[in-house]
Design a protein around this nucleic acid. Sequence first.
DNA 1: GCAAGATACCCAAACGTTTGGTCCAATCGT
DNA 2: ACGATTGGACCAAACGTTTGGGTATCTTGC
Lengths: 343, 343
Amino acid sequence: MDPQRPQVTLRMLADRLGLHVSTVSRALHAKPEEGRRAASSATIARIRELADELGYQPNPHATSLRTQRSNLVGVLVPRLSDLVLATVYEGIQEAARAQGLSTFVTNTKDEPDTQRAQTEMMLARRVDGLIFGDARADGALLAETAARGVPFVLVSRHVAGHTSVTCDDPLGGRQVAEHLLGLGHRDFAVIAGEPYASTGIDRTRGFLERCAEDGMTVPADRIVHSAFDARGGRQAADRVLDAPGPQPTALFAVNDFAAIGAMGALRDRGLSPGQDIAVVGFNDTPLAAELPIPLTSVRSPMHEMGRRGLDLLTRLLAGEPAPSERLAPTLVVRASSDRPPRS
Amino acid sequence: MDPQRPQVTLRMLADRLGLHVSTVSRALHAKPEEGRRAASSATIARIRELADELGYQPNPHATSLRTQRSNLVGVLVPRLSDLVLATVYEGIQEAARAQGLSTFVTNTKDEPDTQRAQTEMMLARRVDGLIFGDARADGALLAETAARGVPFVLVSRHVAGHTSVTCDDPLGGRQVAEHLLGLGHRDFAVIAGEPYASTGIDRTRGFLERCAEDGMTVPADRIVHSAFDARGGRQAADRVLDAPGPQPTALFAVNDFAAIGAMGALRDRGLSPGQDIAVVGFNDTPLAAELPIPLTSVRSPMHEMGRRGLDLLTRLLAGEPAPSERLAPTLVVRASSDRPPRS
DNA sequence: GCAAGATACCCAAACGTTTGGTCCAATCGT
DNA sequence: ACGATTGGACCAAACGTTTGGGTATCTTGC
């Protein structure tokens, strides 16, 4: 279309139409009230037409400089190669686009130093607000950031005192316990995720609470922390299974990938997931349904979480109240946990 | 630290030091030659000190407006929730940060309309260059974009006439064939991925070529296209396995997730991957090694591909030559294909 | 026919940088 | 000692917008 990228500016339009640049700006910018006062509707039409013809695109840097608003939001996640956060981010981005915002996203690997550095970097880029997908339970960085007056919301994980949109993780945990108890399981193990992530903490807590309601308690050495990936899950499962004494009949991993890793560990011991030991994951990753042994999992609305997160942020930016949200999970039972424990 | 985000500007520094804003700019900006001519080293030190103390961060919008360079690069991928592209993007971002660049990334879902719209959107955001991770074999959009004088490179997939950094996919395919032929397999099926992606095309081609060298040919109905995910892989495998006649003894999926889906399809038929039928994937996803039946796969340097892609782009932006690169794959043999076919 | 009010514009400043010029004083070569 | 050089800084314009205020011209009410 264009010959060689000669960017069209307001001045070009103005000159070509014999108008002042400010007139053109108003004509293109303000639809409702301002527009009327700025130019005749005939002129506005002329301006619009030429703008379309030449493919005018406002220079966002000029706009941001003038308005002191970048229409940029920064997103921090542990890692984008984690499907869960990648999906959340897709939701964020989708909502952002709908609002005319753009997003920067960056990995922090759950390392506090990196989180801090990347937050700083986002602010240097003059984002209007931030979305943290990697909040740590202690919340030190968040407190600081809030004190600086930076608008932000949390997604996926929550921390008291900050607005967040999360899955109802305790409920999800309860649902898993309910399901397994219903099948007759009594001996559980939990692969609990990273100790600083509210997701793992809450899912585990919900699970244990529900167990407790049936008088069941899970021994401490059957609750092991782990990374949120297959390797982490395998290692955690190894620790549980290598312990002396009787084996659990059911295993709850707070993350699908950890569950897959755990299944591997089971297989290594000649145990068949779903037959010899029930396995349940969390998030209902697209993979879960397609695995050789389909994985029971709690569906969490990852995409939706991202969308709501961004919406909450824009509300915050508009000075409106932005109450935290908790989205409902749904248990999806599959072959990895569809039969009672072996006697 | 800061009270309430009063952004520090050059003028503030200048005023506080009794200097001119241009002097401050030069002192902070140019280290080597320009700096010397701008101010005495004592003054430079004073300026630097105050800048650090106040936490001066140049306003990128002002800079971009003035210099006509945004230090932004746009990245288009099919979807970020695809681990492969997410990992490539991590590499891109890492390299970008090292160069002081920031990246916008967006999903195009491999839909031509979305690709076009997102390209336009990136350009409207005034990115300096683009990285396409979603190039289509036909290359129509790329040709247009090139004609407009927009600098870009391709990663993961390649298209003739554009600079790209890819895995040596044909070689990867050959390695798989070599391995399977070596085990004595003769009846193959290939899950070939999307027909518009050079990755799948090349991996399949390399595989078939190596087979042909041993006088082996794979019937056309044993080569099926598929989406690059577990569901796609399962569906494709279903099609192969439901066909009448003898079953293949080995199955090559051009993507690990497709391979996982295929394993599920095998399981449904009572076939045990690795025992009854060899399965090989591609990319050596972190998941591959941790699966219940560890998956043989071709390791492709995804991260590295991203890094090199960005480096190539910066070279392009600097007006230097930027020849395409092809990174070497490595076959990693695991239990899913470590024994000869059943007689 | 005249003040008042729209209507349809234009003017100019400002956002925070960068950068080619200019200018003054000190230093230097001879 | 005098013109040439240079070191050290200032000046001003420009990048492309937005926006509070003007200023003509045209209606309108009476």
